[in-house]
């Protein structure tokens, strides 16, 4: 598959025939700046699908972000472009600061997530689960991902904190024309944050998988094959 693609869909995210364990093959697309929701019962494979898109588990199929294919890119670079926010955050250094990349918008994001600026000096072991959840979003955004794969980003948060997270993700998405895939269990929230909602059931994906985004085949027709 070609490493670069012509056509529409600046910043678009294409998933072409991705299979992992009992899920797939699935194909769908998310336009740059668009947010889609993914729902399904527990154990249906929603998180597994996000892990496959981030290339964290062995899987088949192709994923293309903004014209660049996953297979043509080193995995660590791909994972910085496609930012996956797992349902449970994990930390490995002593302080918050050591996990964050310096970024001009960081202090603003931290403030919008309900933190004082000195939170970066905090030790990770004094953070509550909810604080870790919110800070893990700031940690992810500080790496400037070009797509967001969010696995229940507000699962451990109260209504106010959830509102902060929803608002920040929405602003980041529109400011940087970033495609967002939001996995969640709350149908009301998914319909609030996403323009389309897909459902993982019986190993497949149902719903409007392409919306207004052209399919990968449509987009790549005429593009040179490598």
């Amino acid at each position: 598959m070609s490493a670069s693609f012509n056509g529409n869909g600046q910043g678009s995210f294409w998933v072409d025939g991705v299979s992992i364990a009992h899920v797939g093959p699935v194909s769908f697309a998310v336009d740059g700046g668009e947010c889609i929701g993914v729902e399904g019962r527990s154990g249906s494979g929603k998180s597994l699908l996000l892990r496959a898109l981030a290339d964290l588990d062995p899987n088949t199929g192709e994923v293309v972000l903004d014209g660049e294919s996953r297979s043509g890119m080193e995995a660590p670079l791909w994972r910085t472009r496609v930012g996956l926010l797992p349902a449970e955050s994990r930390w490995w250094f002593e302080t918050v600061e050591e996990h964050l990349q310096s970024c001009s918008a960081l202090s603003d994001w931290l403030q919008r997530l309900g933190f004082e600026e000195d939170v970066v000096k905090w030790r990770v072991d004094r953070l509550s689960t909810g604080e870790k959840q919110r800070l893990s979003l700031a940690r992810l955004l500080s790496r400037k991902p070009q797509a967001l794969l969010l696995d229940e980003p507000t699962a451990n948060l109260d209504a106010t904190s959830s509102g902060w997270v929803e608002s920040l993700i929405s602003d980041y998405r529109t400011a940087f024309t970033v495609p967002v895939i939001w996995v969640g269990h709350d149908p009301q929230q998914l319909r609030r944050v996403a323009s389309r909602v897909l459902t993982v059931e019986e190993g497949g994906l149902t719903g409007d998988c392409f919306g207004s985004t052209p399919t990968l085949q449509e987009t790549t027709s005429g593009a040179p094959e490598s």
Binding site: T80, G83, R90, W91, W92, R139, R143
Partner: peptide
């Protein structure tokens, strides 16, 4: 496992993630 994978998701190579 989850911490090692969190480091990989942060863009670290396997060599960086396994070093400690």
């Amino acid at each position: 496992r989850m911490t090692v994978e969190a480091r990989l998701l942060a863009g670290e190579s396997w060599q960086q993630a396994i070093t400690p």
